[in-house]
Amino acid sequence: MIDAAPKEPKVDSTLSKGLLILENLAGSQNGKGVTELSKELGLTKSNTFRLLQTLTTLGYVQHRPDKSYAATLKTWRVGRASVENLNLRELAAPELLHLSQETGEAVYLAVRENLNVIYIDKIDSQKPIRSWNAIGGSAPLHCVGTGKAILAADFNKLRDQVSGVLTHHTEKTLTDLASLDADISATLARGYAFDTGEFRDRILSFGAAITLPGGEPVGALGISVPDINLPEGGVDQYGGLVSLAARSVSAKLGRG
């Protein structure tokens, strides 16, 4: 007798549509209106409006004065709690320490929030000339090492979202999609991202994504280096170190 194939679990359509809206808004830097959301998600305007009202009542979405809708800090707190539940700081602490000892430079653990990275842990540089960012500080995905690493790991999903917000910060910032596409391809090929001074003048950074077994990025490790401190062969050296460290943390997540 041939066993029947297991039945697919039933999915509540209202809940799934509400989560689609929330994910869309959480991934956008700007608010969106009912019409825009309904077109992007293939929902009717009336259905979209009802779901937005529910999400607003529950505190996950806010209705702005310009009539657009945006995700609230409650959504951010839920996402941050998920990161905490992964024990990411604890898991990455040995690798963060190793990177600090090997380079002597500032090293960071970062996670994505919308189209930015947020630094959730760090070890400061002890060198006279140093790079510095605060825990809780942020930077756009497209112009720092940790951000570009996360972006590369989820580029199919994030490309369209980031295309309209390629903000200019230095003369080296990648502000057109063609340049970003090429940079992401290079990042994927070599296994680490390299910021050539694209967010702050003469501050270089290297990043590699920390991923779940399915490849979804949950964060990134990074090294930030004033260009004057970079040794000969330092690009490959630091890139290789951060890539190996991120793979080590990812492996721990896979065993969790």
Rank of each mutant, 00 (worst) to 15 (best):
T72K: 04
T72D: 06
L73G: 15
K74R: 08
T75P: 01
W76P: 03
V78L: 15
G79P: 00
G79R: 03
G79F: 12
G79C: 06
R80H: 11
A81F: 10
A81S: 12
S82W: 02
S82E: 10
S82K: 05
V83S: 01
E84S: 14
N87T: 02
L88Y: 01
E90Q: 12
A92T: 05
A93G: 01
P94L: 09
P94V: 09
L96G: 12
L96R: 04
L97D: 09
L97T: 12
H98A: 15
L99P: 05
L99G: 11
L99I: 11
E102M: 13
E102Y: 01
E102L: 11
E102H: 03
G104H: 04
G104K: 00
E105H: 00
E105Y: 00
A106N: 06
V107K: 02
L109W: 04
L109N: 04
L109Q: 03
A110Q: 05
A110T: 07
V111D: 00
V111G: 00
R112Q: 14
N114E: 14
N114G: 13
N114F: 05
L115F: 08
L115H: 04
V117W: 09
V117P: 12
I118G: 01
Y119M: 13
Y119G: 02
Y119Q: 03
D121M: 08
D121Q: 05
K122F: 12
K122S: 15
K122R: 14
K122V: 09
K122P: 06
I123L: 15
D124E: 15
D124Q: 07
Q126M: 05
Q126C: 07
K127F: 10
K127P: 08
R130C: 03
S131C: 11
W132C: 10
N133A: 10
N133Q: 03
N133L: 08
A134V: 10
A134H: 02
I135Q: 04
I135Y: 01
G136W: 05
G136F: 10
G136I: 10
A139S: 14
A139H: 06
P140R: 04
L141F: 09
L141K: 02
C143G: 07
V144S: 11
V144G: 11
G145W: 05
G145D: 07
T146I: 11
T146P: 15
G147L: 09
K148S: 13
K148G: 14
K148I: 12
A149T: 00
A149P: 00
A149D: 01
